[in-house]
Amino acid sequence: MSKAFEMFSSSIGRKFVMSLTGLFLITYLVIHLAINLLSLVDAHLFNEASHFMGTNWFIQAMQYVLALGFIFHIVQGIALARSNAKARPQKYALDKPSTNSSFSSRSMIITGLLVLLFLVLHLRDYFWELKFDDMNGHATDFDLVVALFANPLYTGLYVFSFIMLGIHLNHGFQSAFQSVGVNHPKYTPGIKKFGVIYCVIVSAGFSLIALVHYFNSL
């Protein structure tokens, strides 16, 4: 590896990768949520926004950056979890991790993998249909959304995934700052509080959209 990128192969360098891609994905989720919320306000407005996202040159270019962000975060996350598991070949007969750390901080790989499974389903049903297929025969993007969330099982799966995402973000948000060295007695308590508010808004916001469309379909 080139000397300039050497640091990214070390334990701390790999944390930087997780942190920076994580912060990028955290920002992306805000944009995604804002556009989806439009589907609760007005069908036409949502279709317009969706059309803009699908055609604007900047957004189209950013799509590739986003894909790279996801790939780096996922591949590095799985690689780190594997090497961390190897660092303790013999487990404890009795261990009480809940006495000193949060559930969300200990389950990042599990919540992360569940969100990854959701992502596969989500890309298949939306990204693929909107970009490369016939949107299951629906006339507008809004119609596709309404049709998919009419299924209670599908809606339930989405809400479950958003809860997993929320748990993942609960630790991920504040952890991303710590990993790049942002830890300060004046700012860190605020970052932690904002992280909790952020993960609740993202998790509840996306869930609300799925649930409202489901109940509207009844």
């Binding site: 961390n84 190897k86 949060s102 952890s175 990993s179």
Partner: peptide, 22 residues
């Protein structure tokens, strides 16, 4: 020091904060 730490086979930090508590 970080290089030696990695060579020794210690795992990576995931900021659980358990170390600080214990």
């Amino acid at each position: 020091m970080v290089d030696q730490m990695d060579k020794e086979g210690f795992g990576n930090c995931t900021n659980t904060g358990a170390c600080e508590v214990e």
